[in-house]
Design a protein around this nucleic acid. Structure first.
Lengths: 124, 124
DNA sequence: ATACAACTTGGAGCTAACTCTAAGTCAAGG
DNA sequence: CCTTGACTTAGAGTTAGCTCCAAGTTGTAT
């Protein structure tokens, strides 16, 4: 799979894909004889995970650390498991904050809907 | 309430509070005769909302726009309601991404726990 | 064989959101 | 009154995460 196809599949720019590889968010991608990226299933898997975790707000630095540990081999299994658990806690905390904001928003939106119906605004 | 007290209450730096005010994330804060910030209930309310929505990933630019509309008066009620609804959608979408990442994490963590028990690693 | 688009690398540039610095002002304790 | 520490502003600097650019290479279609 070419870089272009991966871009289109995941709606991400080629620059970002190359950046992820360069800094180590994903391991080095397979190349053709000519040196052109030719994404294999496993490369795609890393890309998918990277995008998924970045979308959940995980810092690039954490993904780099995970890849680094992964490449170090089986001796880092505990460290990787710990990293993943930490990431889970972070995401759960972030989600709580999103829920609080949603509550606040729903309350405000409700107030605005009353204001729009009555033409009166009596707060905030 | 002094800037220091607000910092401590919300675990945020004074620099950030001043920055929020400067760029318009919150309206201008009440001052003492000497020109020192003296946060009133309403100022605190704005601070609380700003922190809450920033924590939910809303861009500073959007908060500035809301404050701008608010200060323009009742003629902007529809625009403000629309802004809040857009924010709600954005947050709901973001939360979905967080859930997908959580699922992936839980799956991976499960696999690591098996690996840690058996001492074997057969994937990834 | 020759265009010509799409790829490559290394490195510079950009944006959002702070964060820090300098030079000065205010206010509480002695 | 004087010191000392927290406050003020304007503006410069920093960090994360891309995003763009230049100069050169590869691969496909005539």
């Amino acid at each position: 799979m070419t870089i272009k196809e991966v871009c289109e599949k995941y709606d991400i720019t080629a620059d970002t894909l190359r950046y992820y590889e360069r800094v180590g968010v994903i391991p080095t991608v397979t190349r053709t004889a000519g040196g052109i990226r030719d994404y294999q299933e496993s490369d795609i898997g890393w890309v998918e995970n990277a995008i998924c975790f970045r979308d959940a707000g995980m810092p690039v630095e954490m993904l780099i650390e995970y890849v680094r540990l992964f490449q170090e081999g089986d001796s880092t299994i505990d460290a990787r498991a710990a990293l993943l658990k930490e990431a889970r806690e972070t995401i759960i905390e972030a989600k709580k904050k999103y829920d609080i904001a949603l509550e606040k928003l729903d309350y405000k939106i409700g107030r605005y809907e009353i204001a729009q119906k009555t033409g009166e605004l009596t707060w905030d």
